[in-house]
């Protein structure tokens, strides 16, 4: 058979096989959508993922999809979010947060990270959300100052 035809055939069969395997995976189940079960669990993930990060004060989103931490002895913030059946974390330094918005007790964070989608955390009340918004804002302001210094240097 013509080799181009073989290649096209392989691609078509592969695409069908992928669809079939993903369908089978979904039908078989056996995984649990991830939740940040507790602050202790989120802290453990963060401190494993980011060597040297020691989490201090933390807050857990009401839906268990994310947690935020301040850093003990540092200025960074720690973020842990659920993805699929696992957790993903980041240490956020100056310049890592693109925008932070508060809507009532909800806090929306957009990162300067192409691979990390915006995160919304619903916290206990407006005061708590506002205090975290200020902490994040301070971080973004520090980033902006750092950029300005670097640009003028």
């Amino acid at each position: 058979m013509d080799s181009a035809l073989v290649q096209i055939l392989v691609l078509i069969i592969s695409a069908l096989a992928i669809a079939g395997l993903v369908w089978l995976n979904a039908r078989l189940g056996g995984w649990t959508p991830a939740r940040v079960e507790s602050l202790a669990a989120a802290r453990a993930v963060l401190e494993f993922d980011v060597i040297g990060f020691r989490a201090a004060q933390g807050v857990l989103a009401a839906d268990g999809r994310a947690a935020l931490f301040t850093e003990d002895g540092g200025e960074r913030l720690g973020l842990v979010t659920a993805l699929g059946d696992g957790l993903v974390s980041r240490a956020l330094g100056a310049g890592d947060v693109r925008a932070v918005d508060r809507d009532g007790a909800g806090l929306k964070l957009a990162l300067n990270d192409y691979t990390y989608p915006a995160v919304t955390l619903t916290l206990a009340d407006e005061d708590e959300a506002e205090s975290w918004r200020r902490a994040i804002e301070a971080l973004t302001a520090a980033g902006a100052r750092q950029n300005a210094v670097e640009a003028s240097a």
């Binding site: 592969s14 995976n25 078989l28 995984w31 696992g86």
Partner: peptide, 26 residues
């Protein structure tokens, strides 16, 4: 392996991760 994962829980498969891996392979 998926069937083994389902019955023993010794292996983890999650559809969105599986789809991403297989699409990268294709």
């Amino acid at each position: 392996e998926m069937i083994h994962a389902r019955s023993t829980r010794r292996v983890n498969y999650e559809p969105s991760d599986t789809a991403a891996s297989l699409i990268m392979g294709l």
